[in-house]
């Protein structure tokens, strides 16, 4: 699975959306379902997937789909 697809799936699950509803425009600032609780779920899901704690700079960079995909690369 590519990191882009994996990122879409993780973001979709955290935000309660379908994978088809997640695209390059999906972001913390523009997507209504990306609220603080969804963000919390997203960070934990990424840590589970990567098998490690994210550091502070990585956490701050989780603001859009490309940012999530970059962590999975």
């Amino acid at each position: 699975m590519t990191s882009d697809l994996a990122a879409k799936e993780i973001v979709a699950t955290a935000l309660g959306l379908s994978v088809g509803e997640v695209d390059g425009e999906t972001s913390l600032g523009t997507t209504p379902s990306w609220d603080s609780l969804a963000h919390f779920r997203l960070v934990l899901a990424l840590e589970e997937r990567l098998g490690r704690r994210l550091d502070a700079v990585e956490i701050v960079g989780i603001t859009d789909l490309p940012g999530v995909a970059a962590l999975l690369t």
């Binding site: 913390l28 960070v43 550091d55 700079v57 701050v60």
Partner: peptide
């Protein structure tokens, strides 16, 4: 705190700039 994900989200959402770690 680095693990306060909700607050980090909120600062980013409002457009605050990260200036220190």
């Amino acid at each position: 705190l680095e693990r306060n994900f909700s607050s980090i989200y909120n600062y980013k959402k409002l457009g605050f700039r990260l200036i220190g770690h």
